[in-house]
Design a protein around this nucleic acid. Structure first.
Lengths: 375, 375
DNA sequence: TCAAATAATTCAACCAATAAACAAATCAGA
DNA sequence: TCTGATTTGTTTATTGGTTGAATTATTTGA
């Protein structure tokens, strides 16, 4: 929980913080972990950890499992794991040609995943999404899961309060999605942001990185110190219109030579003379890679992140893009000599955004388990 | 204090947090403020605030002053103010043609300010800085101030542990400044970062903004949610090499068409055909302004900040730059229609970096007064 | 079979915030 | 000028939560 630094701290906040600390320590451990190990890892005493774990087990956030095989003398430890039958997150996504819902439990397991293909352009598609969400909810509840909340990924700019300012490819403008769905709290966020969170959740990324989502538009999700950076109004990461060449082709935004004109899906397809994203795999992607490398160099110079994750259509194309990107980074990133920029392909594929949406709900629980327990 | 979220919280942390909360509430209040008002503003009880204030007064962090003029019935309040005779910060700066030191107390008053003109290129200039710091220290201690630490502003890239990786205009490369000076903890940071903190301290800026420092090079200090964002390795804000035109003039960094080639001090002087920064005031700055606007648009699209502060040589030139910057922002910032980007000239002038350095030390005290009291 | 080792729980002590009562100092109205 | 209302600040008993030491539980190895 990003504790508001201008709020008073009382004893109950201490407990709330330490509950989160214990829960996250267990959640971040690859194997079942004992109370004593949690105490060692967190700096709390075993007595305190035991008391906190009691609460977490009573609230179905943690579960005891068979102890891991041990060596050496001593009483065997009871293993702790996030509970599979406790809270779950409902992730939703709406995109140009499909809508999707998924239910993920605290162990990270995708319990249900529903996808409906079809044109979603126009705000009417929200009704269909509501029905899809209801179906996913019924499936989750039938299994005894407590759905803690929902999050919706949208390819557009989202304001506070769940208003989609503009989603160009959906044809949305000032669509109020709201902050409730079937009685659950609903969070609406940009698809690149949620996909970035999703990749962060895989656990093999550093706490600060930038996720670049290549679709028809190009967006970025910025993760700093383990938390999504959303910007003052929630509109961070609009990377598609970084200028590459002020004399370049005119862009739909009105300026010239934006990144999107070189590395957007349409631009790459027409440059390669093909019509499907799959066919790009064999094409020469130097122009797109150079433009992307220029933009990445700008991002790295500005934010000093050392890892960039390429998602969306870029993930499968990374082998063809890699050299051109690297060359541009070497030329433009001032600090490349001291510490290299790592390029990675996203690992989650097209599901990243929905799963990230469900993950965002669960992250809320992990960040403030006391609030969940008190519900 | 940026509480490490993976650290346990104990009762003493509660006290540490609330001490900071009370101290900052008093420090942020324009007028002397009563214990009862602090209680109202923070949500703590009057009893708790009284106890915390006792500690802060005993530690010379707060002082009682004559009560502010009041209206209405009731016992008159005792006014609280940051103590003028408590901790002070020692700010240091080394730049191409001068070195400086200043001592600032908790009230924000600059108690001493020493400047020595002269060429500082080459690492030998550190000895002179050490002597200057000793002079400033003697002056501060003679007045009864407790110097809590020192911070040094350098125009270059600084690594953890006080190593200046490179400061091109000083001719420094891998200079280890260290983390101690005359027995005080010493923090070394980029000049733009500290200047940004300094502007933040003036109090009339929002919690998130970008400060752009125009000197021979161009740097940026990024403040997000009231805290400096330093990046993974401390090298954030290298804005000078944002590409403006890939076919533009070659830059000393090896790439082409970097911002510095259009809006750097040298570029502006030679474009205007003058030799002094003062003479630029009447010149046509459209080219520089357009380049700067392009770079600012990139920063805003990426970080979604709504305020940009122009410092260094840009501050006095803002009237001549404003229109060209605005035009470029309007064209390139996607969200400009919903919420304008505010451009401001820096208010502190050339002293911003030294004062920011002293301010950084004081900020450390404000953020964790318990550590200062326990010293 | 017993000692050593490790895990988890119990319990008294302690620390810090709270709530409520109390003391202090002023204003306002008769 | 007295008196009650009002607000500030302090005192005191209570509560919530962590700590540390002692205790219980369960295994390995000699």
């Amino acid at each position: 929980m990003m504790t508001a630094s201008n709020a008073p701290v009382r004893q109950s906040s201490v407990r709330a913080h330490n509950l989160a600390l214990v829960l996250q320590t267990v959640a971040n451990s690859p194997d079942p972990i004992s109370r004593a190990s949690v105490a060692g890892a967190t700096g709390l005493t075993r007595a305190t950890v035991s008391a906190l774990v009691d609460d977490l087990i009573a609230g179905a956030l943690l579960a005891e499992v068979d102890p891991a095989p041990r060596s050496g003398a001593g009483r065997p430890a009871a293993g702790l794991r996030p509970a599979a039958d406790g809270p779950a997150g409902l992730g939703l996504e709406i995109n140009v040609d499909y809508r999707a819902a998924c239910v993920v439990d605290l162990t990270g397991t995708v319990r249900h995943h529903l996808v409906e293909a079809g044109d979603q352009r126009g705000p009417g598609s929200l009704d269909g999404l509501t029905r899809l969400a209801a179906r996913a909810l019924r499936l989750a509840r039938a299994e005894g899961l407590t759905v803690a909340g929902a999050a919706l990924a949208v390819p557009g700019l989202v304001s506070a309060g769940g208003v989609v300012r503009v989603a160009p490819n959906l044809g949305w403008q000032d669509v109020a999605v709201g902050s409730q769905l079937h009685g659950l709290p609903l969070m609406v966020d940009n698809e690149a942001n949620l996909a970035a969170l999703s990749e962060l959740g895989t656990g093999d990324l550093p706490p600060s990185f930038v996720y670049i989502s290549g679709e028809i538009g190009i967006g970025a999700g910025i993760v700093l110190n383990g938390a999504l950076y959303r910007g003052v109004r929630g509109w961070s990461g609009e990377i598609g219109h970084i200028p590459i060449d002020s004399a370049g082709p005119r862009c739909r935004c009105g300026a010239r030579g934006c990144l999107e004109q070189y590395a957007g899906q349409e631009a790459m397809l027409s440059a390669a003379g093909v019509t499907s994203v799959e066919s790009l795999a064999g094409a020469d992607l130097t122009v797109a890679g150079t433009a992307l490398g220029t933009a990445i160099a700008t991002v790295v110079n500005l934010l000093d992140v050392d890892t960039v994750v390429l998602g969306g259509i870029y993930a499968p194309l990374l082998p063809g893009l890699h050299d051109a990107i690297d060359a541009e980074i070497a030329r433009r990133v001032l600090t490349a000599d001291w510490s290299p920029v790592r390029l990675r392909a996203a690992t989650l594929g097209p599901d990243a955004a929905v799963r990230g949406a469900a993950g965002a709900v669960l992250r809320g629980v992990l960040d403030d388990p006391a609030a969940y327990l008190a519900r």
